[in-house]
């Protein structure tokens, strides 16, 4: 167990927490922006226009088949080159996570929208509701219910994927860990084990409650 004292060294733990905050912040912003993008994307996937549907299909399939790290490279290196648009690494991460989360969520929205029987919209119409009323009072509440567990799951995946940000040079929890390890290499040769161990645990502590929440929601609303 020798070397674990590195974690008690002044400033080490607070700095790791700061790094974790960056990670959580990137994930939270990405999830927050994914929701409107996903709702619009999901709606576009169900429209009648074949061109729109084909475009959405290609968008979804491309995002799904490419590894997230490849998407990050494309955004980070490609965009700067193409339009001289110098997105910083954090911006590239958020952009990719929103496009990815939006596509995944869009597919869920599409599934949820299609799962609600057409009869309900017709019934609402017959009862004298306008199409907006029937959408916002009848269809949307049911869609959101079916959507929430999957969205929480998606949030977990986005938090985990945020770890890739370090490979673009974002100073988040892993990078902070590496800096601490490098700064203490001579004093604590075994610090690597402990610092990475703590980061491992930190990710688990963030993601696990989300997974549990998703499962609980799934169970609760399974029969609705």
């Amino acid at each position: 167990m020798q070397g674990a004292e590195i974690l008690l060294e002044l400033g080490v733990f607070p700095r790791l927490l700061q790094g974790l905050w960056v990670t959580v912040w990137i994930a939270a912003v990405s999830v927050g922006l994914s929701i409107p993008v996903g709702l619009v994307a999901g709606w576009l996937m169900t429209v009648r226009n074949p061109v729109v549907r084909a475009v959405m299909r290609v968008y979804l399939d491309f995002i799904r088949i490419m590894p997230q790290l490849a998407l990050l490279f494309i955004a980070y290196y490609g965009l700067a080159r193409a339009w001289n648009w110098n997105v910083d690494a954090t911006g590239a991460c958020v952009l990719v996570f929103v496009l990815w989360g939006g596509a995944e969520l869009g597919d869920l929205v599409r599934g949820a929208l299609l799962s609600i029987p057409q009869v309900q919209a017709e019934t609402a119409y017959m009862l004298g509701m306008t199409s907006w009323q029937s959408f916002s009072r009848v269809i949307l509440p049911q869609t959101l219910r079916r959507l929430l567990p999957a969205s929480v799951n998606l949030a977990t995946r986005i938090v985990k994927t945020t770890s890739l940000a370090v490979l673009l040079g974002v100073v988040e929890v892993i990078k902070v860990g590496q800096q601490i390890i490098d700064a203490n290499r001579f004093q604590y040769p075994t610090g690597t084990l402990w610092v990475y161990g703590v980061i491992f645990l930190m990710y688990f502590i963030v993601c696990w409650p989300l997974s549990l929440a998703a499962r609980a929601l799934e169970k609760r609303w399974a029969n609705d």
Partner: peptide, 12 residues
């Protein structure tokens, strides 16, 4: 295993 990223698992 499901609630930690592969990158962190690999670094560890």
């Amino acid at each position: 295993s499901r609630n930690t990223p592969l990158l962190v698992q690999l670094y560890f």
